[in-house]
Amino acid sequence: MARRCDLLDTGPMSGNNVSHAKNRTKRRFEVNLCNVTLASDALGQKFRMRIAAKTLRTVDFKGGLDFFLLGTKNHKLTEKAKKIKKQLVKLEASKEA
């Protein structure tokens, strides 16, 4: 299973370990993934996801999963997140009509 965020597709980064003598060796900075269940108020559903801790903080800051998805551009989201966003937009359009 790839270590990637289910919402923003954040993956591991690469860098160097630097010793006291300035010797550099390659290393990976892994993503801090959390298994969470996020509730959509508009859809009335819960979604189990494996997301990065920094993404979880952003979701809380934006006011929940619905506001996070509606305020995020599609090219930043994963396919799973785009499907949920599409349902939200469709529901919102049907309420206006």
Rank of each mutant, 00 (worst) to 15 (best):
M1F: 07
D6V: 00
L7V: 06
L7H: 01
D9L: 01
T10S: 07
T10D: 04
G11D: 03
M13A: 12
M13S: 14
M13K: 15
S14D: 01
G15H: 03
N17P: 01
N17H: 11
N17A: 02
V18W: 00
V18D: 00
V18E: 01
V18H: 02
S19A: 06
S19N: 03
S19R: 01
H20C: 02
A21C: 01
K22S: 10
N23L: 08
R24E: 05
K26G: 14
R27Q: 09
R27T: 08
R27V: 04
F29M: 05
E30P: 15
V31K: 11
V31P: 07
N32P: 03
N32E: 12
L33H: 08
N35F: 05
N35E: 13
V36W: 00
V36I: 11
T37I: 09
T37L: 02
T37V: 12
L38Q: 04
A39R: 15
S40E: 07
A42C: 06
L43C: 06
G44R: 02
G44V: 01
G44T: 03
Q45G: 04
K46E: 11
K46R: 13
R50D: 02
A52S: 13
A53V: 05
A53D: 12
K54R: 12
K54E: 12
K54P: 07
T58P: 04
V59I: 10
V59Q: 06
V59F: 08
F61Q: 15
K62P: 06
K62M: 13
G63W: 07
G64W: 09
G64R: 08
L65G: 05
F67N: 15
F68K: 09
L70P: 04
L70I: 02
L70G: 08
G71P: 11
G71S: 15
T72Q: 08
T72H: 06
K73R: 15
K73N: 14
N74Y: 04
H75K: 14
H75R: 15
K76W: 12
K76T: 04
L77S: 11
L77F: 09
L77H: 11
L77G: 11
T78G: 06
T78L: 01
T78K: 03
T78I: 07
E79N: 13
E79K: 13
K80R: 14
A81L: 03
K83C: 08
K83Q: 13
I84Q: 10
K85Q: 15
K86C: 03
Q87R: 11
Q87H: 09
K90P: 01
K90M: 03
L91W: 09
E92D: 13
A93D: 14
A93V: 08
S94W: 06
K95V: 09
A97C: 10
A97W: 12
A97Y: 15
